[in-house]
Amino acid sequence: KELVLALYDYQEKSPREVTMKKGDILTLLNSTNKDWWKVEVNGRQGAVPAAYVKKL
Rank of each mutant, 00 (worst) to 15 (best):
K13Q: 14
L56C: 15
G46I: 10
K13M: 11
G46P: 00
K1S: 12
T19R: 05
K55P: 11
L7W: 03
K34F: 08
G23Q: 02
L5P: 01
S14W: 06
W37F: 08
G46C: 07
K55Y: 10
Y8E: 10
V39Q: 00
T32L: 11
N42D: 12
S14G: 12
D24S: 07
K22S: 07
K54S: 11
K38M: 15
D35R: 13
S14P: 06
Q45E: 13
A51R: 14
K34D: 13
D35H: 14
K1V: 14
P49D: 03
E2D: 12
V41L: 15
P49S: 02
D35F: 15
D35W: 15
L29N: 02
L29C: 08
L5G: 02
L3D: 03
E2R: 12
A50L: 02
K34Y: 08
K22I: 06
K1W: 12
G23T: 01
V39K: 00
Q45C: 13
K22Y: 04
N42E: 09
Y8M: 12
G43C: 08
V53T: 03
T32P: 04
Q11Y: 14
A51M: 12
L7Q: 03
R16P: 06
G43E: 06
W36P: 00
L7P: 01
G46D: 01
K38T: 15
T32N: 13
L28A: 02
K38Q: 15
M20V: 10
P49M: 04
T19P: 06
A47N: 15
Q11A: 13
V48R: 00
L56R: 02
L56F: 10
T27K: 11
M20G: 01
L7R: 04
E2I: 14
G23R: 01
T19E: 03
V41F: 15
A51V: 10
V53D: 02
K38D: 15
P49N: 02
Y8F: 14
N33Y: 07
K55N: 07
V39L: 02
A47E: 15
V18M: 11
K22H: 06
G23W: 06
V48M: 01
K55L: 14
R44W: 05
T27Q: 10
D24I: 03
L56Y: 10
E12T: 10
A50I: 03
V48L: 02
N42R: 11
G46R: 04
D35P: 02
V48H: 01
W36N: 02
D9P: 06
N30E: 15
E17C: 08
L5M: 14
K38R: 13
L28D: 00
L7V: 08
R44Y: 07
V4Y: 09
